[in-house]
């Protein structure tokens, strides 16, 4: 019966076997793994060029065993445009946080999406600026306390959290836009499926694909990892619903 022994779980080859610098309970590690698994699934590691952004995700090249270009803050979709246009047969993705993509980089993401650039964007939304120490982000929820909204986000002063996946779905150039979370095993599995779907959109040459991933930041939320994880279901998902907002990849 020795032939029945089957490996059912392995470290993704696209992911380096190193310890991450992420805080306990941070979900970047989980999302990194899902991205790596998707690369392995399609066998694109050797032809992938990742574009790193500024924030906790800046060390992309430390964790993924792929070629990487580092972009200025918010500019990853513009850098990736240059990369994809120069190397149209390569697999190109950006990995950006919420401050990077939804504040300083709104112009670049909207126009890359609107041009229908054949890239995939992984957008990690944890409602705060992680690396700089928990300041208010464009996705910070109403009344949420951060180091620059110490009395809670006041929408009269600060405006409202931006729902990027819905916003981008409005653009003609976008083929695929969805939001997922990695707070429960079921959601992790679903997130993996959606990321693969987004990758497949690019691999089949069908245009721009976007996946927003809701993620916990226990350190800057001032919560332990379990409470932080629970907050995703209790507070974030009600404001940022999990859904596929657009999928014209089959059309």
């Amino acid at each position: 019966m020795s032939s029945a022994l089957q490996q059912v779980f392995a470290h993704p080859v696209s992911l380096k076997d190193v310890q991450t610098h992420f805080c306990p309970g941070c979900q970047h590690g989980t999302i990194h793994r899902l991205v790596a698994e998707a690369m392995d699934h399609f066998g694109v590691q050797e032809k992938t060029i990742g574009v790193a952004s500024v924030g906790c995700s800046v060390f992309l090249y430390g964790y993924f065993d792929i070629d990487v270009v580092e972009a200025p803050h918010g500019r990853a979709p513009a850098v990736a445009t240059g990369v994809k246009r120069a190397c149209p047969d390569k697999f190109v993705f950006t990995y950006q946080g919420d401050g990077d993509l939804a504040a300083i980089g709104t112009s670049e993401i909207i126009h890359a999406a609107n041009r229908g650039e054949g890239m995939t964007v992984i957008f990690v939304n944890n409602t705060t600026y992680g690396m700089t120490g928990g300041q208010m982000a464009p996705t910070t929820l109403p009344s949420q306390k951060t180091s620059t909204s110490p009395y809670g986000r006041n929408v009269a002063n600060d405006g409202y959290p931006i729902r990027m996946a819905e916003l981008l779905a409005q653009l003609e150039g976008v083929t695929y836009s969805a939001r997922v979370a990695v707070n429960t095993p079921k959601n992790v599995v679903q997130a993996g499926r959606v990321i693969k779907q987004a990758f497949e959109t690019q691999i089949q040459g069908r245009g721009f694909s976007f996946v927003e991933v809701l993620s916990a930041c226990p350190t800057n939320w001032g919560m332990d990892p379990l409470k932080a994880n629970a907050r995703i279901g209790e507070e974030m998902i009600p404001y940022f619903p999990l859904a596929t907002f657009k999928d014209t990849s089959a059309a």
């Binding site: 574009v51 972009a71 500019r75």
Partner: peptide, 24 residues
């Protein structure tokens, strides 16, 4: 050749950065 009229000067210099990173 590839010509892109970008959304801004900022985007255009970063597109240049990306294409140059690919050796072009």
């Amino acid at each position: 050749g590839t010509f892109i009229q970008a959304e801004s000067e900022i985007a255009s210099i970063n597109m240049l950065l990306g294409a140059s990173a690919c050796g072009q």
